[in-house]
Simulated scan of single mutants.
Amino acid sequence: MLQVIFSFFLGLVVTAFVGIGVNTFYPEPQFSMGGESSWSQWRLTTSIILLICATAVMLLSLAIADAGPVLANGALLGGLFTMIYAVGMGVSAGAQWSRFAVMTAALAVTVGVGWWKFTRGRRPSVEVAGTTAGALPGEAEVRLSAVEAKLDALGRALRD
């Protein structure tokens, strides 16, 4: 449980680090009357910078996956939270096509990294002696069938 909390907290700290870093090196424009276009451009540019940073952090999480799952998952969460931050900034930008391009890139990166993270190294199930693909061997199959029957009966009882 402590590892999950640490990974989550690491993700939040990474997001704060990236957000503060972006705002430090690319600060908000000064407020002026009628300067909405400068704010819209700043939001769009900030969204793109955050998207690039989020992608880098997510790729870093894939690179350090063998070093340990806690740090890798924390970095992945940090990239995901930063991506959410980038999407939020992009949604508030005014330019429709640019905003759509940022959202498309965010979607592609998120799906790509998720696919790589959760399917890499997975092998289709193979036949084990005496069982078919996906079936459990021996007593486990009988026990699972009994649990399924009890759950079905419980479901019918709750519906009635």
Rank of each mutant, 00 (worst) to 15 (best):
A54V: 02
L51T: 05
F17H: 09
A75D: 02
V13A: 14
Q30I: 03
L44I: 09
I5G: 07
I64T: 14
F25I: 12
W97K: 07
I49N: 01
A108V: 12
L80S: 10
F100T: 04
T46P: 01
N73T: 04
T55P: 00
A135T: 07
V18I: 15
D66Q: 11
Y85L: 14
G68A: 10
G134W: 14
F118C: 05
L158D: 11
G74T: 06
A106R: 03
T119S: 15
T46Y: 08
A149R: 14
V113Q: 01
L62V: 12
I20E: 13
G114V: 00
V91I: 14
V14R: 10
V57T: 10
K117V: 13
A135W: 01
R43S: 10
V109A: 02
V87F: 10
A67S: 12
T24S: 09
W116F: 07
L154V: 06
P29T: 09
L80F: 08
A54R: 01
G21T: 05
L77H: 04
A65T: 00
A149N: 08
T15I: 00
L10D: 00
G121W: 00
I5N: 08
P69L: 06
A108K: 07
F81V: 05
V4W: 05
G88R: 09
A95E: 13
F25D: 09
L107N: 01
V111T: 06
G134E: 12
